[in-house]
Design a protein around this nucleic acid. Structure first.
Length: 419
DNA sequence: TCTGGGGTCCTAGGACCC
DNA sequence: TCTGGGGTCCTAGGACCC
């Protein structure tokens, strides 16, 4: 079994630890410029206030219900998070810190375990030692554990999907839009295809899901059926991309202001890079207009620069960032947001095989046949075959699926696909 | 008047290298 | 009619997560 431990209303809970008089009162934590709401207490959720809503939208409600507002304090939240994670790591050797307020715990192979009891124990310990309330869901896979942890919030903090009956109930009572891995775009696409619940989703054919939602969607389906496809990643990996960006509170008309901002962000990126002992291969600068302003034409501009050599040097990154800004800046537009991204960009390696024989269209036919053979041998879930061609030449392109299937890639390498 | 700041992975194809 | 195979790097965009 896998557990997902999730801190309740994390940022708000952190503020409450240091100010217990906030207990029972409506509280929100606001984003950087006090722009939108990024954490809500239960009292606030009950008022119908949504996540990421701009604060000024609901200023009447704030006044009416005397909602307590806090600017975000990430240093505090990071520190509290570490304390919670330290306690959690005592319960199992294999754990993945998924976000600042969530961790997956792997109890696979541990048979002598009472989930309710273990869950209660974790909740009590964390509450006692840190003051943070948490919920825990147990299930066969990460995707199901996500569902279980939501149910846990309505069930005194613990819920386990540990029987076929509970599994069935979980799938039928979960809207497909609430699934981990399904966002707004997919949810509306699925609704158009009459797929509303997680259960409906498990009935959709594999091929259809893969075609419309990539292999990620297919993994979600398998996970819902209880087949683990998403590993617990216990090692903390270096960031592959590092971004520093800000929205300005108001429109920016001067390029000097932008230059200054971009220089600051490039320097900040360099700091983050050095902190994880990485160097950047790529640098990207972007600026865009206010996406919420429907009265003006929208512009998004960005430039990607491949650096001549990997670096994390302040001066070099700053120089290229400013060069990039000069290139993309057009006079006369007001910009609302700017940023710098440095990127190591290590693309998945793929194998391109070319196949030739001596007759035109029969070549394609033979390729198709060989693909069928390969698919039946290795299964469509493991590798994807694509035929590329212009009518005269045909190429077979094999692409591995990353993630847990990677090891099986070795088998593929030994296959020679001569026709 | 005012609407966050980070990240991840997948897909697809072109250029180029030895 | 001929035709290498096995890659890497780069570009660009679309979806998702907290």
């Amino acid at each position: 079994m896998i557990a997902l431990c999730d801190c309740n209303n994390f940022y708000v809970s952190c503020e409450r630890v240091f100010n217990p008089s906030l207990e029972g009162k409506p509280v929100v934590v606001l984003s950087n410029n006090d722009g939108c709401i990024i954490s809500r207490s239960n009292e606030v959720k009950e008022l119908g206030i949504k996540m990421a809503q701009p604060a000024f939208y609901i200023k009447d409600l704030i006044k009416k219900h005397n909602i307590q507002l806090f600017s975000s304090n990430y240093t505090l939240y990071g520190d509290m998070s570490q304390r919670v994670m330290n306690i959690l790591s005592g319960f199992t050797p294999l754990m993945e810190i998924y976000s600042i307020d969530e961790a997956f715990l792997d109890f696979t192979g541990i048979t002598e375990i009472n989930y309710q009891k273990t869950g209660d124990e974790i909740i009590t310990k964390i509450k006692k030692w840190t003051g943070i309330p948490v919920s825990i869901g147990f299930a066969q896979t990460k995707t199901l554990a996500k569902i279980a942890s939501k149910a846990a919030k309505r069930n005194f903090g613990v819920y386990s999907i540990d029987s076929p009956r509970k599994h069935d109930i979980a799938l039928k009572n979960t809207s497909v839009a609430d699934l981990w891995g399904v966002g707004g775009q997919y949810a509306s696409m699925l609704a158009k295809n009459k797929i509303y619940s997680a259960y409906d989703f498990t009935l959709a054919p594999d091929e259809w899901i893969r075609k419309n939602m990539t292999v990620m969607g297919l993994r979600t389906k398998k996970e819902l059926l209880g087949i683990p496809c998403i590993r617990i990643e216990d090692d903390i990996k270096d960031k592959k991309a590092i971004c520093t960006s800000r929205a300005f509170g108001k429109k920016i008309n001067s390029i000097d202001f932008l230059r200054e901002a971009v220089a600051t962000y490039a320097t900040r990126c360099a700091e983050k890079l050095r902190k994880q002992y990485s160097q950047a291969n790529i640098l990207m600068v972007f600026i865009h207009t206010d996406p919420f302003n429907k009265n003006e034409k929208q512009y998004r501009k960005s430039i990607t620069i491949s650096l001549p050599f990997p670096t994390n040097d302040n001066q070099i990154l700053l120089k290229y960032a400013l060069m990039g800004l000069e290139k993309i800046f057009s006079k006369g537009y007001a910009y609302k947001k700017a940023g710098v991204i440095v990127d190591s960009l290590e693309p998945d390696s793929s194998i391109q095989g070319s196949l030739f024989d001596d007759s035109g269209s029969s070549k394609k036919k033979k390729l198709m046949e060989s693909i069928d053979v390969l698919n039946s041998k290795f299964g469509r879930d493991t590798i994807r075959y694509a035929i590329l061609g212009d009518g005269k030449e045909w190429k077979l392109r094999q692409e591995k699926l990353s993630g847990r299937f990677t090891t099986r890639w070795e088998e593929i390498l030994s296959v020679s696909v001569k026709v």
